[in-house]
Simulated assay, not measured.
Amino acid sequence: MDKPIVAANEPIAVDLKQGKTYLYCSCGRSSAQPFCDGAHKGTAFSPQPFKAEDEGEAWLCRCKQTGHPPYCDGSHAQVPDDQVGQPFSLTNPA
Rank of each mutant, 00 (worst) to 15 (best):
A44V: 09
K51D: 01
H76R: 02
I5N: 00
V84Y: 10
P69D: 03
D73L: 04
G38M: 12
A77H: 13
K64V: 05
T43D: 07
A8T: 08
C36I: 09
S75G: 05
Q78A: 14
A13I: 13
Q78T: 03
T91Q: 14
S75P: 03
G67H: 13
F88D: 05
L60H: 06
A13Q: 14
A44E: 15
I12K: 11
C72D: 00
T66P: 12
Q65F: 06
H40V: 07
C72V: 01
A8L: 10
T66R: 08
T21A: 08
P87L: 01
T91C: 05
A44K: 12
A13N: 13
F88T: 03
H40I: 12
A77G: 12
V79D: 02
P11A: 07
F88W: 12
R62Y: 02
G67P: 13
Q86L: 04
C72K: 00
D73M: 03
E53N: 15
H40N: 09
L23E: 15
E53C: 09
A7M: 02
Q65W: 03
T43P: 03
Y24D: 02
A58N: 06
L90N: 09
G67I: 10
Q83C: 12
P70N: 09
V84D: 13
A94T: 07
P11G: 09
D81V: 06
